[in-house]
Amino acid sequence: MATETAPAPVVEKKKEPLFSKKNIRTLRDPLDDNNPITVQVLGICSALAVTVQVKPALIMALGVIFVAAFSNLIISLLRHSIPTRVRIIVQLIVIATLVTIVDQVLKAYMFDVSKKLSVFVGLIITNCIVMGRLEAFALGNKPWPSFLDGIGNGVGYGIILVVVAVFRELFGSGTLLGYQVIPQWAYNMGYVNNGLMMLPPAALFIIGLYIWAQRSWNKKLVNVS
C-alpha cells in the first residue's frame, strides 16, 4: 500500500487525497483488528453454510463485497435525504435491489454455483454486516470513505469464509477448487478424508479455533465480547 504518499488527482484544494492515511485505515481495519465476523460478531448467519468448498465461498465473498460496497455508497449519497424513522426500510430496499442483481447475474452466468448457494444469496439481505455498516458508518460519512469501508468489511468477511472453506475442502474431500491436492499414495497408505469436515459443525469449530488463534496473537482483542 505505497499509494498513500502519492496524492490522487485533487479536484478541490481542501479535499483529502483518495488514499489518505485515514482512508487506508478504513479499508484495512476490518481485515484484522475490527474483523466483521470474529470481532464484531456480524454476518455469521449466511456465511458458514457455503464453506464446504472453496469455489462457492469465493463467489459468495465477491457477492458480499459488491453488495456491501455499493449499498454503503448509495446510502451515504442519500444520507441527508432519508428520514430517520424509515431508514431501516430504505436500507433494506437498497440492499435487496443489489442482492437481486447479484442473484440474477449468478443465475445467468454461473448456474451450477447459484444452485449450490441456493437461498444463501438471498440471505445477503439480512447479512448483519451490510446492515451494520450502513447504520454505523454510511449514515455518518462521505461516499468515498463509505465505499472503502464497504470493501474492507466485505474482504474481511471473505477472508474468514475462504479460510474456513480451504480447511473444510482440503481435509473433507482432499481437493482445493476441485483439484486433487492430497496425492493418491497417501490414500494408499491409509489416509482417510475427514467426514466431519463436510458437516455443518466443522465450520463452527474452525471459526472458534480461528478466534482463539487471532486473540492469542492480538492481545487487545481479548474480552471484546
Binding site: L204, F205, I207, G208, R215, V222, N223
Partner: peptide
C-alpha cells in the same frame, strides 16, 4: 482468556 466469550460459544 482468548477463547472466552465468542470463541467458546462457537465451539
Amino acid at each position: 482468556a482468548p477463547l472466552q466469550g465468542l470463541g467458546i460459544a462457537m465451539i
